[in-house]
Amino acid sequence: MATRAAPPRPVRIVLAKVGLDGHDRGVKVVARALRDAGYEVIYTGLRQTPAMVVDAALQEDAQAIGLSLHSGAHMTLIPAVLEELRRRQATDILVFAGGIIPDEDIAELKRMGVAEIFTPGAPLQGIVEWLRERFPEVES
């Protein structure tokens, strides 16, 4: 007989569009897919500054932040989010990103501490499975 355990704390993920571009098709599709996969998704909406994203993640007690951007500003804005997390002593929050990001920038961003980057054509299933490895407690 299974022992009765306290229900697991839901895993919260903040999804954010950082920077000026308004292309939100990708982030919205990912938001639905993660919600369907059992995560609590908080989508911040457009034009978030790095400080706003980290604020949202702390307020919501999120375990992960997913950043979406398509404008080419990733080498400025993603490091700024990482820096803000360091400043607020919140580097335990997992950061992943998606968007139009060239290979050499991906390598650099991963060195800086981004856990994973999903580029155009990445299947939703791949994102969900990648997160499942990090948060095995989540059930869809």
Binding site: G19, L20, D21, R47, T49, S71, G72, A73, H74, M75, T76, L77
Partner: peptide, 18 residues
């Protein structure tokens, strides 16, 4: 570019990186 599309000058803080 994005700052121009959003009505921001290049020296606006939010234009950084764009």
């Amino acid at each position: 570019d994005m700052p121009t599309l959003m009505g921001l000058d290049s020296d606006h803080p939010e234009s950084r990186g764009e």
